[in-house]
């Protein structure tokens, strides 16, 4: 109970701050480039409610994901509740809400791979990268994900690293995969 009241107090401070800053909307801090892009998408699709999915597609195609500010902007511009936009965004697996990682590590979790120990590969990745399945590292360098069968059952357990498929992956291979990418990034930088 004490905790709750404390939260409420800090909330009050936040509210007061908001009132002074005359209702600072998250949208107002939006990157102008992103804003221009979203505006162009809106123009192309005439900003009609029926076109919401197409507009969201377009934003993701051009930007790699649909940032929160873009959704807030759309909600305002199209007069669609933000709740509705997020219903659509989370309904389709296709849409990404945060910037994807630069390097994608995908573990196949189809039946064959599962039986051959893909679970252990996942655990090892989670441990090495300190993130969970479906998450991206804080530096946005790595994204990991388990997927349904990728059709390489003959080489189970399989992984896809940046579009390249690896078969018969051993738990001990994982550290090396991550390290190679890191070294590559460092020498590029």
């Amino acid at each position: 109970m004490y905790k709750l009241r404390k939260i409420r107090f800090s909330y009050l401070i936040w509210e007061t701050f908001c009132m002074n800053a005359s209702a600072l909307a998250p949208m107002e801090t939006m990157d102008p480039e992103l804003r221009g892009m979203v505006e162009r998408c809106l123009q192309e699709w005439e900003g009609r409610e029926g076109n919401l999915i197409m507009i969201l597609h377009e934003i993701q195609n051009r930007h790699g994901f649909v940032p929160r500010e873009a959704s807030l902007f759309l909600a305002e511009a199209m007069g669609i509740p933000m709740a509705r936009i997020y219903e659509v965004l989370t309904f389709y697996h296709y849409f990404k809400l945060i910037a994807p990682g630069k390097h994608n590590l995908t573990v196949c979790n189809g039946t064959a791979c599962y039986l051959k120990g893909s679970g252990r590969l996942l655990t090892e990745l989670e441990r090495r990268l300190s993130i969970k399945d479906g998450e991206t590292t804080e530096d946005r360098m790595f994204h990991m994900e388990s997927v349904r069968c990728i059709g390489c059952c003959g080489m189970a357990p399989a992984m896809v690293v940046d579009q390249k498929t690896f078969g018969k992956v051993a738990v001990t291979d994982v550290a090396g995969m991550i390290e190679r990418i890191r070294l590559q990034e460092e020498s590029d930088a």
Binding site: S22, L24, A25, P26, L72
Partner: peptide, 9 residues
């Protein structure tokens, strides 16, 4: 009274 943002985030 004062205007507030509907979404804080």
């Amino acid at each position: 009274y004062a205007a507030r943002a509907a979404y804080k985030r």
